[in-house]
Design a protein around this nucleic acid. Structure first.
Lengths: 245, 245
DNA sequence: CGTTTGGTTGAAATGTGTCAAACTTTGTGG
DNA sequence: CCACAAAGTTTGACACATTTCAACCAAACG
């Protein structure tokens, strides 16, 4: 019996609200149904009423909506340790879809089990709540980004966020990370056309801020990128300075 | 002793998760410090660590951030019954500011009191949580709106949302409402210039969808406006069909 | 009644989108 | 391992939505 990794979840929650031993052990014992998914598959669909939430164990996924005119807007990227539809625990009908970008390993946990859990361990309930509040703070920053920053800064900001978040879960070394996001997906996340994403990425390379080859992103000039993107990680609400480069 | 209106809050929470009599009475007894504020004043500031959250009793307010280049982005409008910084209960540092648009009456409730409350009445804790999740869903829709809809539809969408939300708290009759938002504020909310807001509003009037005189908005053609804005109120997560026109 | 705030207009500048094609990389099956 | 298909990236020319600038007008206000 493979010990399916609640460790990502534990690390995440522990960084949000210090957990006791009993709570950690209960988390490990959470009944989780693990699934492997190919890339570009829907995990949950807008309008559905899931009876479980899921935990990202491996891979990259995103939340998105499609407008009446068929344009897709990506709302968030989900990395290992995230619980992208934790909200469905209290909001029965999903208001957006969530799909894989790369092949993913995810673990489903029944709402019933989560609910019992929250009742038994109020501290974990609070940590879950806090996590959804951080998600909301990130949405707020995305509104600022798409509403008020031009394409070049917008892209820089998104790259900063990606690196910082990946670093927090140990998926980025000091200056770079694997970021398998296509230019078309960047466009859908930033409200830009694919063509313009391409040009803006070239500008960022030309300015000596990044190298982006295949899916390998290297940040050459972190301060420069942060300045270009007007990036301040406060909205991610990390505990004291855990995000320093 | 004026009975400062917890009724707005009770109605809101009751619509979110049916409350018992004990819970309602405890809500009425919540110690609340009421304040009157002039228009265009900050209520709480980004970076601060408030020890209380506040309830909108009267007036219109908004959450906003300012970018490094001095552009303001409005993130949400707050109407009576809202608790705009409920989040600060679990996220100590505020990541955006909240300010009045019109003169406002607001009621501060100490975090300690709210916390005790949540511990004593788990159902209310869940209702609060649910409310913050609905806020998050609204942010998601705003990302879609600014990211993927052109100015005309974007404006139509915002107007639809405003009318529907105001109607839900009894501040709009069938076809219209008082909406004291300047064109410059619309611009900051939609990521548009004031000038363009002006032109788009003229288009909406020209199309016979709305009349907007002073701060009095009348929707002449609700179906037309909804279609123009690609508006589906599902993301507001009202209970069954309470939002029908 | 003057002053401020908010609304309206026009002309020109510009950032970003669209279209269409070529190129490169990745993945797959023979 | 090659050949091919599919997916992703890059380029150029052009169209267009939106911004900027600047001025004027109307309404609200002290």
């Amino acid at each position: 019996m493979p010990d399916f990794d609640a460790s990502a979840l534990i690390r995440r929650l522990d960084s949000i609200a210090a957990l006791g031993e009993a709570e950690k052990q209960a988390l490990v014992a959470l009944p989780m149904q693990v699934a492997e998914l190919k890339s570009n598959r829907d995990i949950v669909r807008q309008g559905s009423r899931p009876s479980a939430s899921f935990l990202m164990l491996k891979g990259l996924a995103c939340s998105f909506k499609v407008t009446g005119e068929g344009k897709r807007q990506i709302l968030a990227f989900h990395i290992p340790g995230d619980m992208p539809d934790l909200q469905s625990l209290h909001l029965t009908v999903l208001d957006c879809s969530i799909g894989t970008i790369t092949p993913c390993t995810i673990g489903f946990v029944q709402h019933q089990a989560l609910q019992d859990f929250c009742d038994r361990f109020p501290r974990i309930a609070r940590a879950f709540w806090r996590q959804t509040l951080i998600d909301a703070a990130t949405y707020r920053e995305w509104i600022v980004n798409t509403g008020r920053r031009p394409a070049y800064e917008r892209m820089a900001h998104l790259l900063c966020e990606a690196v910082v978040r990946l670093r927090a879960v140990g998926l980025a070394d000091g200056d770079g990370c694997d970021l398998p996001i296509t230019q078309s997906e960047f466009g859908d996340a930033l409200g830009l056309s694919t063509v313009h994403v391409n040009r803006v990425l070239q500008e960022l390379r030309g300015a000596g801020l990044i190298v982006f080859k295949g899916s390998a992103l290297s940040v050459l000039d972190w301060d420069g990128l942060r300045a270009a993107g007007d990036f301040d990680p406060a909205y991610l609400h990390f505990e004291q300075g855990a995000e320093a480069p």
